[in-house]
Amino acid sequence: MQHYSNDGHEVRDVIFNDKEVNIYNQFFGDEPTNIVPPLLCAKLWPEFTLFQEFIENEILLRETEVTQIQPLSVNEHYLAHMYIVDCKKIRQYMKYIVKLEINKNKYKCISITQTFLERI
């Protein structure tokens, strides 16, 4: 996967292969399909350099918002954009809002915004 970073924004080429989608669907007892389940996109988060700093730290996932505009298909190339939307201190916590958008031909297919808390 290629990736590009630009101060709080990173872009990667992604593809969901049919084998991983079928394994995911089997795990949840769903029928095989060529459509990528929205929550399978969670596997992308650790692949981004922007998210790497959170892997070593203990963070709490506070909120997830998923907006799917178009379904994702298996074996298709997409551009995944990760943004650090906000970072601020709230009492003894740091609050991070991180957004993942997946696009096909400059059209947004899915947007996932997650809010994390880290005790400082």
Rank of each mutant, 00 (worst) to 15 (best):
Q114M: 15
C87Q: 14
E118I: 07
G8C: 14
C109R: 00
E53I: 06
G8Q: 15
N103D: 07
T115W: 10
K104Q: 09
N75P: 04
F54V: 08
S73F: 12
I23P: 00
L117A: 05
E76H: 09
E65C: 05
F48H: 06
T115F: 07
W45D: 02
E10S: 10
I55F: 09
F27T: 14
W45V: 01
V85S: 05
Q68G: 02
P38Q: 08
V85E: 13
M1Q: 07
K104G: 01
K104S: 08
I102W: 00
Q26I: 03
I110W: 04
Q26D: 13
E58T: 12
V98C: 05
I35L: 11
V14P: 07
D18H: 10
Q26K: 14
F27E: 11
I59N: 13
Y78W: 05
N105K: 11
A80D: 01
V14S: 10
I15N: 07
N6K: 14
F48A: 06
N103S: 10
Y78M: 03
W45M: 12
Y78P: 02
Q26N: 13
G8V: 12
D7S: 13
H3I: 03
S111E: 12
T67L: 12
F116D: 08
T49I: 07
L39H: 02
K104L: 09
Q114R: 10
N34Y: 07
D13G: 03
S111Y: 02
N25K: 06
T33D: 09
K106G: 00
Y83N: 11
Q2D: 11
R119P: 02
T33F: 00
I23D: 06
V98A: 02
E101V: 04
Y93G: 01
L61Y: 10
T115C: 10
L44P: 05
N75Q: 11
P38A: 07
I110C: 01
I102A: 03
Y78T: 00
P71T: 01
V74G: 00
E31F: 15
E53Y: 05
I120C: 14
V11G: 01
F48Y: 08
K89T: 10
P71S: 09
T49F: 15
H9F: 09
S111I: 02
V66Y: 03
L117S: 07
C87M: 13
L100W: 01
Y4G: 00
Y96Q: 05
Y78K: 04
Y24N: 03
L44C: 08
K99E: 11
D30R: 04
F16M: 00
E56C: 06
L117V: 05
V74A: 01
I112E: 01
E10H: 10
Q26L: 05
V11Q: 11
T33C: 09
I69T: 06
I120W: 14
T49K: 15
F48L: 11
M82D: 01
R119L: 14
E47S: 14
